[in-house]
Design a protein around this nucleic acid. Structure first.
Lengths: 122, 122
DNA sequence: CAATCATATGAATACATGCTCATATGTTAT
DNA sequence: ATAACATATGAGCATGTATTCATATGATTG
């Protein structure tokens, strides 16, 4: 309990509302958690990956079909599928030479729906 | 109907499962919508912005307090607040020299909750 | 009006990332 | 085995982006 606290004071290095900052700090999840959350959303933050996930909402697909659907290089699709897999958003199943990808998450659909709701002009 | 379709055929430029691709294509939202969705998630895909949003879940805060909370430059915070505002995720209110930011969205909380649920090892 | 303070903004920089090209891996068929 | 095919992977490149520094804007106070 120093003498430099109170409701309103100087800013810059100090804080205007010390109580608020303390309260907020208490309620915040740990840094690692927030970092992981941002990492997850980073995965959603790319058109190609969003398209792939949306496609997999409808059906399991092989790399070849996804490539044709998106009109991209097979390599590009494969790279992005790896990202999605590392984030545990999709899983794959081998059948001969083909690899079939499908969703591996129950939350993505709801996250996307909420995102779409926001986009639809609020 | 031509003679190059069917269930299984060559890949590369053609498609293995033409029916699946067609079905998926039909069910996919338009390109612009998918782009906007990715743009929205891109905003969530940064630790600083995630922290700011989490902070605002608890309380309205001025730039100064957010800066102190995050231990960043005031400039960095201001830049990110602009991004959040452009995405219509936060709104601001002026009071003298201070600017108070608060949430401007009902979906973010649920999106974050779903994201956290995914992270918590499924 | 001059000084101080809170916030915003522009330029520069450092770093991340998505795509392509080339090639590797692994599977099926001849 | 060899060829054809589906997918994965690594390097390189081009683009995007988060931060910092310096400074501008706008408000309050003396």
């Amino acid at each position: 309990m120093g003498d430099e606290q109170g409701s309103i004071e100087r800013c810059s290095f100090n804080v205007v509302h010390k109580d608020v900052v303390e309260l907020v700090k208490k309620k915040m999840p740990g840094d690692e958690c927030l970092f992981d959350l941002a990492e997850l959303f980073k995965v959603f933050g790319d058109t190609t990956r969003v398209k792939i996930l949306f496609a997999l909402f409808t059906a399991e697909m092989c790399v070849c079909d996804i490539t044709a659907l998106l009109g991209l290089t097979q390599s590009a699709v494969s790279h992005q599928l790896r990202v999605l897999k590392q984030a545990r958003l999709v899983k794959c199943r081998k059948e001969g030479k083909m690899v079939y990808y499908s969703l591996d998450d129950e939350h993505v659909k709801q996250i996307f729906d909420q995102g779409l709701a926001h986009i639809s002009h609020k």
